[in-house]
Design a protein around this nucleic acid. Structure first.
Length: 485
DNA sequence: ATGTGC
C-alpha cells in the first residue's frame, strides 16, 4: 500500500490527492488530508496531523475530519480543517471555528482596465491608506455605541443598507445575504460589544489587507463571464474579520465551555478542542454569539468596500456606478454553520466547522445566489503579495468529498517571529515595487511578516483543489496596490 | 487573528 510517513503518523493513500489516517483507539472516524506529497512535506513535522487526528474524538463527528490542501497547525484544530459534526447528538467547538470569527474575503469587480490605473498607483494606494482604517486597536469607518453594535450583530448588512452603506445588490452577492438569522446579540458580552464599537469598518492587522488587483489569467471563460471577470480588468480584494469583537466572543466561550462541560473535555486529547454538547444551553448560546460576530464581520467588510468606492470616485473622478464597482461575492473563512448533508443516504443536520476553509457549493445548489446558480458558488482564495490570488467555483464533488468546502489561502510556512528574522519590511517593499506592486502598511514588521516568502505555493494549493473537483480555477489576479495594518 | 500570555 502507498503510504506517507510523517512524524509519528502514517497516512494511507486513498486516491491521488486523498490521504487517510485510519481510525484507531479513541478516534470516532478516520481523518483525511487532501494534498499532494509536496504539500504534505510542509506539514509532516508540525502539529497539523496530530490536531486533525485529535479532532476525530469530538463526539458526533461524521465520515472523517478533513484537512484542506493549504492546512497548517492552529489552536487545537488545524487552520484548513473541516469537520461535519451532528447538530443533535454531537457538539460545537469554538476552537474548531477559530478566534477570528468570519475572517473572510470579498471581491469587488470594476470596468477599469490595468491601463486606466497605471500612473495612478501612488495616489490610489495613499488615498486608500488614508481613508480605510487599519492596524491594531480602535478607529473604524463609523464610530458607534452599544445599541448600534447590537443592531449590527442582529441584522448584519441589512443595517448597512438602511444606513446608506450598501445597495440591494451587495446583499444578493454575499454568503447568507450578509445576515445570519440565528444571531443572538443578547449572548454577546458587554465587553465584546465595547471592543466592537469603534472598529466597524477597519482592516485590523496581521494577514488582513485591501488589495487592488488586475486579472492576469482566465481559465474557465464561461464561468468568468458569469462572474463578470475578464483579463486585464481591475478588481478589489478585501480580507478581514470581526476584529476584537469576534476574538472576545471566542475567548469567553472557549473558557465557559471548558468549565461547564468538564466531562466532555476529559474525553478529548487536547483542551484546546473544548466543545459544548449539542442541545446544551451553552451550545445554543455560543452558536448565537458566533452568528452575531459573523454579521459584524460582514458589516465590517461592507463598510470598507463602501469607503473604497468613495476613494475610487475621487481618484478617477467618476461615480462608482459608472465604474461598475459591484460586489462579486463575499465568503467566510472561519465559521460553523448548521447545514443539511447526506450521510449514508440520510439527510442530517450538521454543525459544519470550517476553520480556514471556504464553502464551495457546486452549480445547482439552492444556496448559491441566483446569478451564479448555473456555474457554482464563487470561491475567493487570497495568495501572497508576490504570487497573486485566485477565483474558483464550487466543484462537482465538493458535497461528497468535503461537506461542500475547499481551501482558503496559501498557508504560512513559518511563524511571524521567524519571518521577522528572515525579512526586512522595506526590502520586501522595494522588491515588490520592482514587480509594480505598491504596498503601504502601518508597520514595517507587518510587511516582513507577510513577505511572499513566508507563504506556501498557492498555485499548488489551487491545483490540488481543481484536480479533486472540490473547487475549480476560474481566474487569477496579481496585486497592483496593497494596504495593510 | 488579538487593546499579543498563565
Amino acid at each position: 500500500m502507498d503510504t506517507y510517513d510523517a512524524d509519528g503518523i502514517t497516512l494511507e493513500r486513498v486516491e491521488e490527492y486523498i490521504w487517510e489516517i485510519p481510525q484507531e483507539g479513541e478516534m470516532n472516524t478516520p481523518a483525511r488530508v487532501l494534498a499532494s506529497e509536496e504539500l504534505l512535506d510542509q506539514i509532516a513535522d508540525d502539529k497539523t496531523l496530530q490536531q486533525l487526528k485529535n479532532s476525530t474524538q469530538l463526539p458526533g463527528v461524521q465520515q472523517h475530519a478533513i484537512c484542506m490542501p493549504d492546512g497548517h497547525q492552529g489552536y487545537g484544530f488545524p487552520v484548513g480543517g473541516v469537520a461535519g459534526i451532528d447538530a443533535e447528538e454531537g457538539c460545537i467547538s469554538p476552537g474548531a471555528v477559530g478566534f477570528d470569527i468570519n475572517c473572510g474575503v470579498r471581491m469587488m469587480t470594476t470596468n477599469l482596465s490595468y491601463d486606466d490605473v497605471q500612473g495612478h498607483e501612488e495616489e490610489l494606494v495613499e488615498s486608500l491608506f488614508a481613508n480605510v482604517p487599519s492596524g491594531l486597536g480602535g478607529g473604524g469607518v463609523v464610530e458607534s455605541d452599544v445599541e448600534t453594535v447590537e443592531e449590527i450583530l442582529d441584522r448584519g448588512v441589512e443595517w448597512a443598507l438602511d444606513e446608506g452603506h450598501a445597495v440591494e445588490d451587495d446583499l444578493a452577492h454575499c454568503e447568507d445575504e450578509g445576515r445570519r438569522p440565528d444571531a443572538d446579540p443578547a449572548v454577546v458580552s458587554q465587553k465584546a460589544k465595547d471592543r466592537g464599537k469603534n472598529q466597524i469598518g477597519s482592516l485590523g492587522s496581521g494577514n488582513h489587507f485591501l488589495e487592488v488587483q488586475r486579472v492576469t489569467d482566465v481559465f474557465r471563460e464561461g464561468v468568468a463571464d458569469s462572474y463578470g471577470l475578464s483579463a486585464d480588468q481591475i478588481v478589489v480584494l478585501i480580507h478581514c474579520g470581526s476584529r476584537g469583537l469576534g476574538h472576545q466572543v471566542c475567548t469567553e466561550y472557549t473558557r465557559e465551555v471548558e468549565q461547564a462541560h468538564p466531562e466532555l473535555l476529559d474525553q478529548l486529547p487536547d483542551k484546546e478542542l473544548a466543545a459544548a454538547p449539542a442541545g446544551s444551553q451553552l451550545a445554543e448560546e455560543y452558536y448565537g454569539a458566533m452568528c452575531a460576530a459573523i454579521n459584524y464581520a460582514w458589516v465590517n467588510r461592507q463598510l470598507i468596500m463602501d469607503r473604497t468606492r468613495q476613494v475610487f470616485e475621487r481618484v478617477f473622478d467618476r461615480s462608482w456606478e459608472e465604474m461598475e464597482m459591484n460586489l462579486l461575492y463575499d465568503v467566510a473563512h472561519n465559521i460553523a454553520k448548521k447545514e443539511d448533508h447526506e450521510i449514508d443516504g440520510e439527510e442530517r443536520e450538521l454543525y459544519v466547522h470550517r476553520k480556514g476553509a471556504t464553502r464551495a457549493f457546486p452549480a445547482g445548489h439552492e444556496e448559491v445566489p441566483r446569478a451564479y446558480r448555473d456555474v457554482g458558488q464563487p470561491v475567493i482564495i487570497p495568495g501572497s503579495m508576490g504570487a497573486g490570488s485566485y477565483v474558483l467555483r464550487g466543484g462537482e464533488s465538493s458535497m461528497e468529498t468535503t461537506f461542500g468546502s475547499t481551501a482558503h489561502g496559501a498557508g504560512r510556512t513559518m511563524s511571524r517571529t521567524q519571518a521577522k528574522d528572515e525579512f526586512w519590511g522595506e526590502d520586501v517593499q522595494d522588491e515588490l515595487r520592482g514587480q509594480k506592486v505598491y504596498v503601504k502598511a502601518q508597520s514595517g514588521a507587518t510587511v516582513a511578516e507577510e513577505a511572499p516568502g513566508v507563504y506556501k505555493d498557492v498555485d499548488e494549493v489551487v491545483r490540488v483543489s481543481d484536480e479533486l473537483g472540490i473547487g475549480d480555477t476560474v481566474a487569477r489576479t496579481f496585486p497592483v496596490c496593497n494596504i495593510k495594518g
